[in-house]
Write a protein that binds this DNA or RNA. Sequence first.
DNA 1: ACCTGAACACCGTTCAAGT
DNA 2: ACCTGAACACCGTTCAAGT
Lengths: 205, 205
Amino acid sequence: MASRRQEILDAALALADEKGLDAVSMRAVAGRTGVTPMALYPYVGGKAALLDGMVGRLLAELVPQDAGPDWRRRLRALAHSGRSLVHRHPWAAALLFARPAVTPDAVFAVDQIYAALLEARVPGAQVPRLERMISTLILGYAASEAGGRFGPADVDPRAWRGQLPEGALPGHAALARWLDLPVDWDAEFDADLGDLIRLVESVSR
Amino acid sequence: MASRRQEILDAALALADEKGLDAVSMRAVAGRTGVTPMALYPYVGGKAALLDGMVGRLLAELVPQDAGPDWRRRLRALAHSGRSLVHRHPWAAALLFARPAVTPDAVFAVDQIYAALLEARVPGAQVPRLERMISTLILGYAASEAGGRFGPADVDPRAWRGQLPEGALPGHAALARWLDLPVDWDAEFDADLGDLIRLVESVSR
DNA sequence: ACCTGAACACCGTTCAAGT
DNA sequence: ACCTGAACACCGTTCAAGT
């Protein structure tokens, strides 16, 4: 039954959201489904396939974009939708780099970017590249937030002293004023999207 | 001894390069170092810290940028260096999203981007954001290549038929000519860098 | 058709013990 | 100071067996 499969995927998603991806073991998912680990195999087929299934199900949350006439707004809405998807399910970020857009939901999202770029009068030969550039930045940004790459370098800067020659970081020195400021990550994401949109406009015919 | 630690990290890196990150177990690393698993703990301190150490060591390969007077060329060289690092060590891509630039080598690389942006006359307040945008795109691109996100959607398109309503993918339909073409990933990366550089120029004072 | 139970070959990490 | 060995609480997956 397809419903048994959904039940299993629901249990796996709940486990990942609650306790992280490491908590998603065949044994734990089975326990939560009220069944023995081996009973999962006919429905999800192994651990790797289970993870694929989880991602596929997640991407369904990406769909409900309703059009609107302005390609800029549609692009921004889709970007925010993708970022907030990763915020809700941070464990998914790493998995999303692992395979192309193969599910109907994912293909549909890509098509929305294609349509926006075409409406922006981007030459067809450039559209696939720009779609990859845009989706890479959205996913990379969200993955950096979720993974901790954008987090504070909670390390004593004095630890570098001696490791790097004096004056080896002229950029950091010149930017000291701005590097101590707290960052508004929502605003930064919006600014990045603004830059991307201006980039798209500059590529347009 | 610090040399014992290096010996252990070398074994772990060799294992990851040869057999993937999953093959890097405390037991396997210990075996390759000619020692018992528990003997690793005083030197690398647990599995998570071992992975951190591996990334730190990897980033040493990123350093040898020699200046040159043109910030555009320096930015391109650094980008290519980062991408080729991930090509040589594809297992590292996921880990690089997991923590900020904390090692001297990583901080040094960030400083080079800062310096390039300042030389391009980008306002100081914008430099940290643009550095994150650029490094996110480089890392995201490399991670997409390494992880398989840019790979062929080796799935029969007919599998979507019925799942998506007829005509639901107008973008794909309009771009059919270009979507079947093979992609030159080196050239696409260069084109992305060109777009980023034009973006930087447009932000300059 | 659907599920269970025991088993195999692994994990990371603790703790007490050896030299 | 440095390392070992046994043990604990886990993994994913195979295979034969149950109903």
